[in-house]
Amino acid sequence: MRNLIKMILKIPTFIVFLIFYIEEVVRANLQVAYDILTPKHFMKPGVIAIKMDVESDIEILSLNNLITMTPGTLSLDVSTDRKVIYVHAMYIYDADELKKQIKSGLEKKIMGLYR
């Protein structure tokens, strides 16, 4: 019963999250289209490791999905002890800045959705 009430209370958060997700997908695709259609590419791709605070299966899956669908990043693998996620990014001008962005932006959203 308590779980049911909790789920019903989460519905507005979920709708906000869905709008955020669609917005991110549209931005990601506009960026990909821009990258591909402009002739000269000034990419700086690379693989970076990001420490995760989320723990359960569904949270890690959502974080993976969100990272892949947001602009410029693609999740490659999760370490066996489930503490670190490896992310391939298109533009790495400052690796620490990007890590901070993903942690404060996407991971906070996931935590707000499931906790």
């Binding site: 700086k44 791709p45 690379g46 693989v47 970076i48 490791a49 490659l76 693998d77 790495i92 690796a95």
Partner: peptide, 11 residues
């Protein structure tokens, strides 16, 4: 990886 890759922390 492409030769322009700047960082590879998975190595």
């Amino acid at each position: 990886l492409w030769q322009g890759t700047v960082v590879d922390q998975l190595h």
